Computed example of a mutant assay.
Amino acid sequence: MELRTFYNLQEKEMTFEQVFERIKMYMAQQPIGHYKLMLGTDSQVHPQQTRFITGIVIQRLGQGVWACATKTIVKRKMNHLHERISFETSLTEEIATLFTENHKNELIHIILPHIYDGATFSIEGHIDIGAGQKNRTREFVREMTGRIESSGLEPKIKPDSFVASCYANRYTK
């Protein structure tokens, strides 16, 4: 597997370990907080390729976020909806595997001394699908949420999957 790099508006070409250090620093600044680590992918079909963007967002509820993204290009138009949604989910699962048990434990240990003061930490997998009657992706909800759950993430779909449907979506154009 090629070395994946991450970027945001301030930094380009970050390694995963650099991303992880930024997340730890963000949480350590204010360990008494409600933290959500959210991963999600969106895609856009272009004339010669399909662009996938996977976002990593650490949110301190009510007090901002730190975020970055990574890009994957498939050199063909992926017009079949199930294939594209499945590949988006696979990319989110891939990024989730980078957060090993040691990584997760390091993040938990930042807030652990403060849980009685209300500090919390959760990890979510955001999927760009919806269960609404008019949503073309509703038939994939059970399959994709099951995959995200088996990755150890709490699955979120529209309208609660903003990392996929808003943050990553912005960079797919």
Rank of each mutant, 00 (worst) to 15 (best):
S43I: 08
S43P: 08
S43C: 08
H46N: 11
P47R: 10
Q48W: 09
Q48G: 08
Q48F: 10
Q48E: 14
T50A: 02
R51A: 09
R51M: 07
R51Y: 06
I53C: 05
T54R: 01
G55S: 05
G55D: 04
I56W: 01
I58Y: 06
Q59D: 08
R60L: 12
R60G: 04
L61N: 14
G62D: 01
G64D: 02
W66L: 08
A67R: 14
T70C: 12
T70S: 15
K71M: 13
K71R: 15
K71A: 09
K71P: 04
T72K: 13
T72L: 08
I73H: 06
V74D: 04
K77W: 05
K77P: 06
M78A: 03
M78K: 05
N79I: 11
H80Q: 13
L81A: 10
E83Q: 14
R84G: 02
R84V: 06
R84Q: 07
F87G: 00
E88V: 04
E88C: 05
S90Y: 15
L91E: 05
E93G: 10
E94T: 11
E94I: 09
I95H: 00
A96L: 01
T97I: 01
T97M: 09
T97L: 07
L98C: 12
F99Y: 08
T100V: 03
E101G: 10
H103E: 09
H103F: 09
K104D: 06
K104G: 06
N105P: 03
E106F: 07
E106Q: 15
L107W: 03
I108R: 11
I108W: 15
H109M: 15
H109V: 07
H109T: 12
I110M: 07
I110T: 05
I110V: 11
I110C: 05
I110N: 06
L112I: 07
L112E: 13
P113F: 02
I115H: 04
I115C: 03
Y116V: 12
G118A: 07
A119S: 10
A119K: 02
A119C: 02
T120C: 05
F121C: 05
F121S: 02
F121R: 03
S122C: 10
I123A: 11
I123M: 15
I123P: 00
I123S: 11
E124A: 07
G125T: 04
G125W: 00
G125S: 04
I127Q: 00
D128I: 03
I129S: 05
G130Y: 00
G132I: 05
G132D: 11
G132S: 10
Q133T: 11
Q133V: 13
Q133N: 12
Q133S: 13
K134Y: 14
N135I: 05
N135S: 13
R136Y: 09
R136L: 14
R136C: 07
T137V: 02
T137F: 01
T137H: 02
R138P: 03
R138Q: 12
E139M: 13
F140S: 01
F140T: 01
F140A: 03
F140Q: 06
F140C: 02
V141F: 01
R142Q: 12
E143C: 02
E143L: 10
E143M: 08
M144G: 04
T145K: 00
G146T: 07
R147E: 00
R147W: 05
R147T: 03
I148D: 00
I148Q: 00
E149N: 09
S150E: 11
S150D: 09
S151N: 01
S151P: 00
S151E: 03
L153Q: 01
E154D: 11
